[in-house]
Every structure is written in C-alpha cells, then in structure tokens.
Design a binder for these strands. Sequence first.
DNA 1: CCGTTGTGGTACTGACCGGTAACACCTGTA
DNA 2: TACAGGTGTTACCGGTCAGTACCACAACGG
Lengths: 201, 201
Amino acid sequence: MTPSSGVSAEKAERIPPRARILAVARELFYRDGIRAVGVDAIAEAAGTNKMTLYRHFASKDELVADYLRESARLATAGRDRLEAEHPGDPLAQLRGWLARMAERLANADERGCPLVNAAVELPEKTHPARRVIEEFKTAERAWLVRVCRASGLREPELLADELHLLLEGARVTAQSVGRDGLGERVMRMCDALITAHAEKR
Amino acid sequence: MTPSSGVSAEKAERIPPRARILAVARELFYRDGIRAVGVDAIAEAAGTNKMTLYRHFASKDELVADYLRESARLATAGRDRLEAEHPGDPLAQLRGWLARMAERLANADERGCPLVNAAVELPEKTHPARRVIEEFKTAERAWLVRVCRASGLREPELLADELHLLLEGARVTAQSVGRDGLGERVMRMCDALITAHAEKR
DNA sequence: CCGTTGTGGTACTGACCGGTAACACCTGTA
DNA sequence: TACAGGTGTTACCGGTCAGTACCACAACGG
C-alpha cells in the first residue's frame, strides 16, 4: 500500500486538490448516491484528507452543489459542442443530442441524470442543490425548445416537452427495470415525434 | 407531550404495531427519502420503539423492501379498481389511469413513483428492494400493453412504452423542475399518442 | 534569512446509525 | 391463579457521520 493510495483516482499528479476532490466526488456521488458517500471516502479516494476538503468546500451540502454545477457545466458544454459540430443545422444538433442520450441508455454505468437523481435524494427545498437542479433543467428544456423552433418544427414547445419527458422517463427506467433495447426504442419514438411535428396539418 | 406522541400518525388505536410501522415507514420514506429516515424515527412516529420494529422486520433493508411491496400492492389494487369501474372497456381503464397520473402531477406532495425513487437511492444490485422494483415495473408495463392491445390500438407494445416513459418522465420532472401545468400538458400528449395509434393506417 | 501559504496527518467532538440485550409490563387464556 | 406472548423501556454496542483543532512540513517570495 503506497502512501498515496486512492480508490480509483490516484492523483499524486500536479492536479490541485480541489479539482481532484471534485472529480472523485462526481464519480462516487453518481455511482453510489449522494447520501451513501461520506466526505471521508471522497477525501481518501482523492488522495487527500478531510481537512483539505473542508478548506475548499464549506460543507458537504456545498460540495454536492458544486458537484451538480460541474455536471451541469459538462452537459451544457456537450450541447455547445453539438452546435459547433453542426453549425446552422439545428435539426442535426437535435438528432445528435438524441443519439447521444440513446447511447447512454445502453451503457451499464448509466445511472440517469445526476441532477434528477439528486432531486430524488434531496427533497429538502432549502438544500443548495435545489437551485442548481431547477436552473439546469430549465435551461435544458429551453435549449430543446430553441432547437426545435429553429428546425422549423410545428409546436416547438410541445415537441420539446415530449422529447424531454420521454428521455427523462427512459433514463429512470434504465435504472428501475433495465435497458435492453431501450435506446433503440426511444430513438424510434423520438423520430416518430419529430416526423409528426414536421408533417403536421 | 402525551406518552404516545408520534409525528403524524399517533396510533394508540387497536392497529397492531406492524401495520402502524409500515404505514409510518411509507409516509416517511416517501416524503424524506429512504436513506434520510432512520429506524428510530419510524418507530417513534409509529408510537412504538426500535425493539418492536426489529421483532417484525429482520433489518432496515427488509423494512424498505416491505415498504416497496406495500406501495406496489396499492398501485396494483388501484389498477384492479379501474378494471372494476370500467368492465370490458379497456380504453376507459387506460384513460382513467392516465387521468389519475395527471392528477398526481399537480399534487404538491407528489414525489414521483416510490419504487423509481428507491431505485435511484439504492443502486446496490444485491439490495432486497431491487427485485421488488423490477417486478413491479415489469408488471406495470405489462398491464399497459394489455390494456392498449385490448383497446384495439395499433402497435400496443410501442404505445405502452411511449405512455409509460412519458409518465415516468413527468413524475421525475415534477420533482426536479416543477409541476406548473404539467398534468394537462402530459394528458394532451397522451391523448395525441392514443389518437395516433387509433388512426394509424 | 524569515514568514507566509497551502497541504497532509492525526486526533478529536458530538451526534446519529443499524442492531441487540435484559427486564418490566400488560393482556388474554386456561 | 398462574402462565405465556407480545409489547414497551432503557441502556448499550461498534461503527460512521459531518465537521474541527492542532501541529508538521514543504514550497514559495521577500
């Protein structure tokens, strides 16, 4: 057992402790659940200790909020990347987003949207995570509406809601029942919805 | 402070302790989350103590599994009631089920499906709750397929999945973003889906 | 050279966790 | 009356929780 022994992220590297802690927290919180992971475990897995953790995060609740902010940032960056990959082609952006979601559904490590899971785990309305969750989900839906509208599809708000709810449902269903062929089925449903909103009247 | 002081369910009544414990567990686990509620809190709120609780439940995990079995039983009973209310009219049963779900979405106490929430909170594959969750969700989907097929709708499996995923998505979205008008929107989407599967060539 | 800053290590607090032992009690029954 | 089973009460176990005090050390810049 070497002196610097972390669980999955042994970082004796030059990455500052705050980033190491946040990376490890993201992994453990997502995989095992927020309430199931103690700050001790995070600190140890990050190759540091609880004191250093509390020098960078005021409390576990704040660490959780930062974990969710980071997750939201990554998701937003992914959407930005899609826009860069398909400039001026909102329909391709939309399909790319759906395809990525479908891929995730087949992944065995997939445990749904980290922010949705946090909302389930942390019902307290005063928890600092609540704001982050609400803002992220609102932005996500707004992006979908924008892309649907830019694609010239009829009733973009309705379509965005249909797609969004369908995907959210699929991501929790993957956790509760299973994911056999779920990705393909969902993709077909989404395609049908898009087609319906393209043809409509 | 009377000697028998529970939180929300003061039962000095003639209800046996096991039932009291299960009722209180259902309320607290659902409202606050499974990991957030200790066995002490449940015993106290049920007007009893931890010893009596452990005389009826082998462990907290088993209590959780029983809580989920009870929730599943209630949901199944609700579907049976629908069949009794609309005998031989599967379409009315389906619409009744959807209407009930939409009602729930507007309720401020709604915290989604207890079994889905448990799946999010308890990722361990070996947890006794896992079996209960999977069996319930499989049965729920099977009921939907059966009703859709009996209603003479085209592609009943596909329609059942569409409705199921949409509803699951709505129930988690109510927790993470909000429920303003969500029930009505979802009902409209479901109606459109049913119509589409009724007309379909 | 000194002092500052960030980090790691250890030990600790007080509360709570799930789970158990031992005993008093109450109620029904024979 | 006497026994028995289910229940309530208290105290306890070892472990873990979030959070903190204190000190040692290493790197830095003057």
